[in-house]
Every structure is written in structure tokens, then in C-alpha cells.
Nucleic acid binder design. Sequence first.
DNA 1: GGTAATGGTAACCATATGGTTACGAATGTA
DNA 2: TACATTCGTAACCATATGGTTACCATTACC
Lengths: 124, 124
Amino acid sequence: MVTITRHLDLTFAALSDPTRRAILDRLVHGVATVGQLAQPFAVSRPAISKHLRVLERAGLVTRERDGRVSRCGLDASPMKDAADWVDRYRRFWDQRMDQLVQYLETEPDKLTPQDKTKKDGGTP
Amino acid sequence: MVTITRHLDLTFAALSDPTRRAILDRLVHGVATVGQLAQPFAVSRPAISKHLRVLERAGLVTRERDGRVSRCGLDASPMKDAADWVDRYRRFWDQRMDQLVQYLETEPDKLTPQDKTKKDGGTP
DNA sequence: GGTAATGGTAACCATATGGTTACGAATGTA
DNA sequence: TACATTCGTAACCATATGGTTACCATTACC
């Protein structure tokens, strides 16, 4: 499913900027015009426009011209796949993998078969 | 807490590339050398090195030279903050905000005080 | 010691961000 | 109609990705 992968690319990339995350946080309180979104951030309107385009491309924000103003709305549904992806790592949040591995290396018998294969030269 | 914000930047940015996500998925099965990581991906070793640097900067991967090889380990702990951030939007996953707003606009009394303020000229 | 494997860095290129200023298009309003 | 608002785009710049090839430093092994 390449589409989902591409979708995750866009979602995570959109979330990687603090201004864009703040825009999303602001849209939680309700719809907002571009001017209302630009006001609290010390940044120019075109910069906000670009951020909105990134958010729009990720499907996180919907823009709709209403006369002279553009009303932006939140669509958080793409975050679901992102949350699902990250959640797969939940069981690793508390344990450091390298520490685990150091433990495993002191007991070679506990290495996974895959790791043993790799030591013989890798997968065919 | 600017540090956390910056940390989220790096984490989300690191997760926005499919190769890096695949590397993380692979490290779940255990530690791996750079060569083992580069093998399944149709990409050069320097490219993997760059991806690892991004993952390392985000704190998601630990690298440790062991003689001639570099062993890479997973550290998923930075994902916790990312998951917490995304989870705040969980209640919005199913509802489209613009649809909600259209409903609110038919009943102006249900607008939040903040929205009413914005219509008068924004926050001072 | 000589040689092959491992992997890091340098130099280079194309593209995407993130920002600016300048300008134009559309719309509301005096 | 003239003018001010709102917003988008164009052009430009700096930096970060994402990729390549070429080269170098270490290290294991004959």
C-alpha cells in the first residue's frame, strides 16, 4: 500500500514544523480565516499561506474561500494513520533497544534466528 | 518548553521518510549493522548513513562502533511525546471540523466567545 | 605486512522548506 | 466609482533533504 506510505510522509512532514502544529492547535477552537491564523504568529501572510498549503496537501486542513476571506477548517482524520503507526512502538518506549541488545549479547543463545543468519552473511 | 517543541520537530521530521520508517521497523527485530540496514533498501550506503544521522539526531537510533562495524539500536522513547501530541486530536478523527463549523454558523449563539471576539477585530 | 571489507565523509546536484518583499485579483464598503 | 481589505502568487534567497560517486580511515584476516 504505497498510498498510505505516501500519506504518512505528508502527515509527518506537516507535523514537523512548530508553526503548523500551532495552526492545528488553533483550529481546534474552531474555523479561522487566514488573517486570524497569521495574526498571533510573528510571520508574514505568505509564509502562513505556504504552511497552509503543506497542511492542505496532507489533508489536515480544508480551505474554502467565502467571499473575500478564506475559512480554514481542521480535518484530523489523517492523524489516525500516523497515530496507529507510532503506537506500534508503544511497547518499546520504556526499554532502550541497545541496552536490551547488550543483554542479549551476553547470552548468545537468546539471539533471534534472523540475527544468527545475518552473522552468516545476510539474507539471500 | 521550547526544547520539547524542537524535539517534536526532529521526531516528526525523522518519521516523514519511508526509508527511515522502514529502518525503524527493521530495528524492532533487533540491533543491526549499517550494512545489514542498507542491504534491503535499493539505496547507497552513504544515503543510509544520512538517514541514520537524521534518526540519531532525533534520538530514535543509537549508533555504536564495534570494531569495524557499526551496530544500530532502536530507542523509541522520543515517539512517546509525538504520540501524546497526536493523541490530543483523537476526538477529532471522526468529525470534520468544517462540517461542525457549518453547523455552528447556522446557530450563532453556539459560537465560542473567542470566535465572537475574533469577528470584532481579533485579540489585542 | 598486504589486502579486502566496513562504513564514514567530501563534493556535488536536484528538490523541498521556510522565509522575505512586491505585486495582482477579487471583494466589501464609503 | 474609488478605495481599502483580504488573500494568493511570483520572484528571490538560505538551508535542509535525499540522492549520487569518489575517496579515506579502520579493522579483520591471509
